[in-house]
Write a protein that binds this DNA or RNA. Sequence first.
DNA 1: GTCTATACTGAGATAGAC
DNA 2: GTCTATCTCAGTATAGAC
Lengths: 202, 202
Amino acid sequence: MGPRADTIRERIISAADQLFYEKGYEQTSFADIAQAVNISRGNFYYHFKTKDDILDAVIDARLAKTSQLLQAWETEATTPAERIRRFIHILIANGGKIQRYGCPVGTLCTELAKLDHVSKDEANKLFILFRRWLSQQFTLLGREADADDLAMHLLARSQGVATLATAFQDEKFLNQEVKQLDDWLDQVVSSTKQPAASVIEN
Amino acid sequence: MGPRADTIRERIISAADQLFYEKGYEQTSFADIAQAVNISRGNFYYHFKTKDDILDAVIDARLAKTSQLLQAWETEATTPAERIRRFIHILIANGGKIQRYGCPVGTLCTELAKLDHVSKDEANKLFILFRRWLSQQFTLLGREADADDLAMHLLARSQGVATLATAFQDEKFLNQEVKQLDDWLDQVVSSTKQPAASVIEN
DNA sequence: GTCTATACTGAGATAGAC
DNA sequence: GTCTATCTCAGTATAGAC
């Protein structure tokens, strides 16, 4: 690392990140990214040798950003239930973009899976990051036995809502489903709080 | 219509249908389709002038095939609950392909939405077909008040399961979620069967 | 109707001047 | 480090021979 950070590199990654989300990976060309950053294509190749290199850099950046987000949620919210609720509500917070471009994680992983791209496992780490974090929160909630199942269930529900919200551009549906997820979380919490009582009943 | 159906055209549509599913629309080239059908690229253009024309033909074919499938379910299964269960269980019946390529409806609609393709509304009709049919079945079940909400909910759940099944290639997860959807359907049915009783309680 | 040949475009990638 | 010029290749599409 020199005295100055490579800011152009970061601007490229940032622009590519956005374009990959809005247009998809395959559909985004070098020219698109170069134009967004306002550099020539030649200069571009000074920073990244291949398109796959940019993809890996974008995935790394997203992984880092996601880690920071999850850590922030842990600081801001004290109870695991409240943290999980933060996750549920990104569907609303990012509702507009989701209706236009879908979930950034889901659409990238689906595209790379269909391309059978070498970096698809790397992209899946984004899913794994959420999965592990949610699983951890459900464990803290007292559901160590099925924490991972609950995490996967919640991830799947969110993905489905995002997919249909994109197809139907329906904000009412999105809000309705988020409410149902809130209720579902309440149920998980309340059915967990009395573990001793349920044992006695058996 | 002449004495002989245009079978080459149908073979092109069938091959394109499969390739669009497995590789995605953008990633499938004319050469790919021509090679699959074993005709020259020149001959190809005799049947379809542009790639968009093939896409429209493929979507039309899928719409027709889906309509037939839904009608078959209505004939084979007598109760609406049993028909809805047929829908749920295509997740298992097509499990292998879903793990590799995702849901054919969801992945196509998502790709076309991101491309902002002229035919994206046409592709969404596939979703609408399932939505209307499911809504109709829930109505027959006695849930006319929220039939469409239940249909959208079930569609979303299925989409989410398909997306994560593709990312994680996890058959156990897929079966687990299908079982939960079965249970959910049972709950919808049983909470509907005694409408008089619940009115009395109020 | 089916094929070959070929034009045209845009994309990824490289070389080398400045 | 940044740029221009250029190469290669794949993809869409057309013209015209058979």
